[in-house]
Design a protein around this nucleic acid. Structure first.
Length: 570
DNA sequence: GCCGTTTTCGGCCCGACTGTTTTCAGTCG
């Protein structure tokens, strides 16, 4: 898929145009780059399907940009981009990573000091040349040197699951301050996006200076980017940035709405406000000078004609239209789950015994837990063979006799072989309550073969759930290639559920797949893939993913009680 | 360069913070 490559080029064109002070054209390219980045459909497929005409139906794409896309697909280059690069041969991708450097300053640095990349920049700063430039000073020079260090160490976006515990700690520290009346998470963490660039936190306080002083002096802070009375921004030791904004009570809802984003969602809500003759900013919704809403998010949305939109839905992918028409889904709640559907015990590669896993599940308020130790060929995960699987079945029967308030279900995670057959024979699988099947090998198979492989597994009478159906690992491994619609149809027909794997490195299915699966009539389960009892709490991330995929309670099978859950698979 | 229930021309989201300036441009989100 070339969407991301193309987006990168359009971002660069946008920045080159900004250097030339062509702001509006710059913004046009910037918008298209963002659209491309978040677009699910393959741009090449769109072009092959309907040529320039269909390209122009993409928001932000007009005649000219459609032509540029065509040029890229045909030649791998865009002549406009080449021309701009020739005019200013600077490594924009590298230089814009330095905090505080944008296109205009990069232009000055290039024109005056012939700085083309980070190396040049560092040399010039060390020699003290930058401080001598007009518009720059000693402070700028020092900041640039420090920002270079951070840019070098930058690891890009982090996984939500890696960052959320720290974020909650920061929030809890702020909540303890007597000057703070209320604290809330905002930004992409509040939207539970699977990867996070930085962290946004809001607080209500009548003594903002005190709060900011505490915030920038937290022991984990290694750099203060900015410190003001309404906004401060810092870098934490762990390598991420965090913004804190202190606001007044009456604006809290508007600020929360604004700083939760997404950016595209905000632009759309602001435009809606303008259409209604209103103004929406982080301080409220205004009719002329008069504030008509802002205290809480609900009234902000209502004042511009929308029903309340849950943070996980705020991506400007149809939620605003749905809210206008009162057609938003009743998305699943975080306490709707009644059972675990995928986890591992010390029989295979898990760390805790079955009994411990069950007790922890009970603590979480579940009615059942499906134990799915690896069974088959995954020797690296101590997979069970058929003999040990039969032994485990007997063991679970014994455990169930001793436990109350939680039912342990007999399951296994079996491998889907290259030809779509399973790694454990049917006569053994029949003895289990539910079978979870997954692809663990042969990821590079071609699309047609992989589609048939998955469908064959789905059609197996013993298979109840396909685990991590696309095989992707966030930022590490692409989903394997298959025809989603054909697989979804097979899953629907055979009443085989598809899993939303809740582990934050997978989150597979992803949000857009979930929407498509539900539209196709597929039922889903959320499973944590826990390898120890603590990881059963990862369910939160799976639920968030389901919410981001517009899933309602009825779409997720393990929101059902034990009886109804099992009934679906009969 | 894109876009349209005010418009096919004339708009394009908008406010805070910094560093440098002596009233503001650049950057960021």
């Amino acid at each position: 898929m070339k969407n991301l490559e193309l987006a990168q080029i359009f971002y660069q064109i946008s920045e080159f145009l900004e250097m030339k002070e062509d702001g509006f054209r710059s913004r046009a390219y910037n918008k298209v780059a963002r659209v491309l980045e978040s677009m699910e459909k393959d741009i090449e497929e769109i072009y092959q399907l309907g040529g320039l005409k269909l390209l122009e139906e993409i928001p932000g794409v007009g005649k000219n940009i459609a032509l540029r896309i065509e040029e890229y697909l045909k030649t791998g280059k865009i002549s406009e981009h080449q021309k701009l690069k020739k005019e200013s041969p600077v490594d924009l991708e590298e230089l814009t990573k330095v905090e505080g450097l944008g296109p205009r300053k990069i232009k000055i640095l290039y024109k005056k000091l012939n700085i083309r990349n980070i190396k040049d920049l560092e040399k010039a700063a060390q020699k003290g040349k930058i401080g001598e430039l007009e518009g720059f000073g000693d402070k700028s020079q020092k900041n640039i040197l420090q920002a270079i260090e951070f840019a070098k160490a930058d690891q890009g976006r982090m996984l939500l699951g890696q960052i959320l515990p720290t974020v909650r700690e920061i929030i809890s520290n702020l909540e303890k301050l007597k000057e703070v009346e209320k604290v809330s998470l905002a930004g992409s963490v509040r939207r539970m996006k699977e990867t996070v660039g930085d962290i946004d936190i809001l607080a209500i306080s009548s003594k903002p200076e005190k709060v900011m002083e505490f915030f920038v002096k937290m022991p984990e802070v290694v750099k203060i980017w900015a410190q003001g009375s309404t906004k401060s921004s810092v870098r934490f030791k762990k390598g991420f940035d965090c913004d804190l904004r202190v606001i007044k009570k009456e604006s809290f809802g508007a600020a929360l709405q604004y700083f939760t984003g997404s950016k595209d969602h905000n632009i759309a809500t602001r435009r809606l406000a303008i259409k209604k003759g209103l103004k929406l900013n982080e301080y409220g919704v205004f009719k002329k000078e008069k504030r008509i809403a802002g205290k809480n998010e609900k009234e902000v949305y209502q004042s511009i004609g929308l029903s309340y939109i849950e943070p996980e839905l705020r991506t400007n992918t149809g939620e605003i239209e749905a809210a206008l028409n009162g057609e938003l889904p009743q998305i699943i709640q975080y306490n709707d789950i009644l059972g675990e559907t995928q986890c591992h015990s010390d029989w295979s590669d898990g760390r805790n015994p079955i009994r411990k896993m069950a007790q922890e599940a009970k603590k979480l308020g579940y009615q059942y837990i499906l134990i799915t130790d690896h069974a088959g060929f995954l020797k690296i995960a101590h997979a069970l063979d058929e003999k040990r699987l039969c032994k485990q079945i007997e063991e679970i029967d014994r455990i169930n006799q001793k436990l109350s308030g939680i039912k342990v279900l007999k399951g296994a995670e079996v491998d889907i072989m290259m030809d779509g057959s399973l790694s454990i024979k049917d006569s053994v699988l029949e003895k289990l309550d539910l079978v979870v099947a997954a692809v663990h090998s042969g990821f590079k198979m071609n699309k047609e073969d992989m589609t048939q492989r998955l469908i064959k597994a789905i059609e197996n009478k013993n298979v109840s759930i396909i685990a991590h159906p696309t095989g992707r690992i966030i930022q590490k491994r692409e989903a394997y290639s298959f025809n989603y619609e054909e697989v979804f149809q097979a899953a629907k027909k055979n009443k085989t559920a598809l899993e939303i794997n809740a582990h934050y490195v997978r989150l597979d299915l992803k949000d857009t797949d979930i929407r498509q699966a539900i539209e196709s009539g597929v039922k889903l389960t959320i499973g944590t893939d826990a390898h120890n009892s603590n990881e059963l709490s990862l369910m939160e991330f799976g639920i968030a993913q389901a919410r981001r995929g517009w899933a309602e309670k009825k779409d997720i099978l393990n929101t059902r009680n034990l009886k109804d859950f099992l009934k679906y698979f009969e």
